[in-house]
Design a protein around this nucleic acid. Sequence first.
DNA 1: AATAATCCAACATCATGTTGTACAATATGA
DNA 2: TCATATTGTACAACATGATGTTGGATTATT
Lengths: 189, 189
Amino acid sequence: MSKRDEITAQTRQNIIDAFWTLYCEKRIEKIPVRDITDKAGYNRGTFYEYFVDVYDVLEYIENSLIPTLEELPPVSTPTGTLGMPLDMFLELYQKNSRFYSQLLGDNGDPAFASKLKNSIKPTIRKLFEDNPTVDIKELEYILEYTLSAMIGIMSFWFKQSDALTNEKLFELIHRLMESGVIKQLPFKE
Amino acid sequence: MSKRDEITAQTRQNIIDAFWTLYCEKRIEKIPVRDITDKAGYNRGTFYEYFVDVYDVLEYIENSLIPTLEELPPVSTPTGTLGMPLDMFLELYQKNSRFYSQLLGDNGDPAFASKLKNSIKPTIRKLFEDNPTVDIKELEYILEYTLSAMIGIMSFWFKQSDALTNEKLFELIHRLMESGVIKQLPFKE
DNA sequence: AATAATCCAACATCATGTTGTACAATATGA
DNA sequence: TCATATTGTACAACATGATGTTGGATTATT
């Protein structure tokens, strides 16, 4: 890598880092380019050499956090007792939790949840694609239901100050997926 | 209602309507006050007589869409076979689907999903609050899991061009909640 | 007629995105 | 190897557009 490329990469990263710090503090629409470059130590104009606008920075970050098909583990037989490769999702979330919890949180980007779900869906679909007993249309609803639930519970988990342990959380999720929500809650008969 | 009040209410509503039309077309941060008032037929300055800024309009709309405790049906025994008052949620979503699908969608407000979930949680919590066999901490995770899943599947449903019928969707949700995701999908043994 | 509200025009301020330029790093040709 | 041409990085300055505020004109209410 030439010195030029190093400088370029470093500057880009400095801008990204400064943006992320601010993004964790406030909504993206309240972040002026000026604040980013001030924090990163550059002229405002320099920002535009690297990004189109503030949203472009976010997109750059998001794309680096969406797993590619190659990164996702290849699907063979259902993993463990779960049947759906959701351990994969748990791992993915934990690896990037710092970013995911922000992007999927109240000040995050609603489109990121969709991107994430859509990046995972093909892998799960493959499990069922040549199984004639599966209703394809229904499967799509189940995918959406499940991934939404997973994202919801993981984000919630991450926000808790006295969170469940990994093991307890995983065990709970397994239970919920295997026998449903209702069975986990006793009702007066 | 005096004529004054009528005019005030009408103007406020006109601004809200104009905002909503634009909000359905693009992200909120790309909506200048000018565009709103142009569409509504007022001077830009008039906007500031009614709202603090563009986000204030959104907040106003959101608050009118969050059910109050009184609006939510009183909890007695679990409704139907579901055990959780989720029919309530389905009804709520359908009544406001035009707004919900936008606010909960990719160009929506991530904070709205939280507001909505938090408005419903107390009602469900009450069902279990004096049941000593329920793990309170775990219940919170189950609530988050379930409500996230419900919001996810309803939003997905609404986006579909050839969507399932109401009945099929409800039946699917019931199945998923009663016996879990896994049981709904056959695996090669 | 006096008061209070609705609405608007004009202003100062701030953020945006672009352009021209200084300076540093690299490539080229004797 | 050394001088020169070329490219890339960063910046200051500019034009444009959006923001939020203020003072005044107009219309409804008392």
